[in-house]
């Protein structure tokens, strides 16, 4: 290929004016919508100096909120990971009545407002709810306690792992598992040495997204948790609480922790995408003859 000559008419749709306008507009909107608020959070968090920042985030209520958020993630993420793998496996490897329905059900939390999920849980487990009386008689506390927070978080993030795995596993088909079994591998052995390694990046990608959402979830959790300071307050709820207390700097400090978490998530996401996870990496993993390596060096 020779270098394109200068002053040649641009490709179709490649007019310089359109290009410049579009790029400038997108950059400007991105800066105002996304970047500026993040910068504000960080500057506000440190506006009264580092010591005040440190004091705020080590305050007992904030510490407890962080702990609760981490605890919720530690329970909700593994459970949803197992659910995601199981759902993806069932949907892609088996034929059963209700397969399509399961596919739709697993996607519902994406399209439904989290607050609806929270209210629904109120109706199911609340005192006036379906199991409310039975639960109270058995002295089991679900709402306004950790179980409720975990359940609501799990509802909201249920599709994350399954959604990453299903297209990949669909593309891979059953050949690899059949090959492993025909070579004498047991079901568990096949899963751990053949299936899992081939979905590991997509799985991790789903887990990272799921974790980010669990830690940041506000709507559903705010309904079921009861916002009891130092007891059922997760980090996002705590931010709101501090803000309503006119402790702006404290709110921004707590928010900055969530922001840092988000930045770590993005970094993990980018690294995983380089490994072929996410939507972009699928075809290469899927097609057995995608790489025409007829003459490898």
């Amino acid at each position: 290929m020779t270098a394109p000559a200068r002053n040649r008419p641009p490709r179709v749709g490649d007019s310089p004016a359109v290009r410049r306008t579009l790029i400038t507009a997108v950059l400007a909107i991105g800066a105002v919508l996304v970047l500026a608020p993040l910068v504000v959070i960080l500057t506000q968090a440190f506006s009264l100096g580092f010591s005040y920042f440190a004091e705020t985030i080590t305050a007992p209520d904030t510490r407890h909120a962080i702990l609760l958020t981490v605890l919720t993630a530690l329970i909700a993420v593994p459970v949803n990971t197992v659910f995601g793998i199981a759902a993806a496996w069932a949907i892609t490897k088996f034929d059963f009545p209700g397969r399509r329905l399961l596919l739709i059900v697993a996607e519902i939390p994406f399209s439904i407002s989290p607050i609806v999920a929270g209210v629904a849980y109120l109706f199911v487990y609340g005192l006036q709810g379906l199991f409310g009386q039975a639960l109270q008689d058995a002295d089991i506390k679900i709402l306004f306690a950790l179980p409720g927070i975990v359940l609501a978080s799990m509802f909201v993030t249920a599709p994350f792992v399954a959604r990453e795995l299903i297209p990949l596993m669909q593309a891979q088909g059953r050949d690899l598992e059949e090959a492993a079994t025909s070579l004498g591998a047991s079901g568990w052995r096949t899963f751990f040495s053949v299936t899992l390694p081939n979905i590991r990046w997509a799985l991790l990608y789903g887990v990272v997204l799921c974790n980010a959402r669990v830690m940041g979830e506000f709507g559903a959790v705010s309904v079921v948790s009861g916002n009891i300071r130092g007891q059922t307050n997760t980090l996002p709820l705590h931010v709101e609480l501090l803000y309503h207390d006119y402790n702006t700097v404290g709110a921004f400090a707590a928010a900055s922790i969530l922001t840092v978490l988000a930045i770590f998530t993005i970094i993990a996401k980018v690294l995983l995408e380089r490994q072929g996870a996410g939507r972009g990496g699928r075809p290469a993993l899927a097609a057995p003859n995608a790489i025409p390596a007829e003459k490898p060096q």
């Binding site: 050949d175 690899l176 059949e178 090959a179 492993a180 390694p197 081939n198 993993l285 057995p288």
Partner: peptide, 13 residues
């Protein structure tokens, strides 16, 4: 039995 699959089904990892 030894089975050779149409698209080989080699373990890519």
């Amino acid at each position: 039995v030894g089975f050779v699959f149409q698209h080989y089904a080699l373990f890519p990892h």
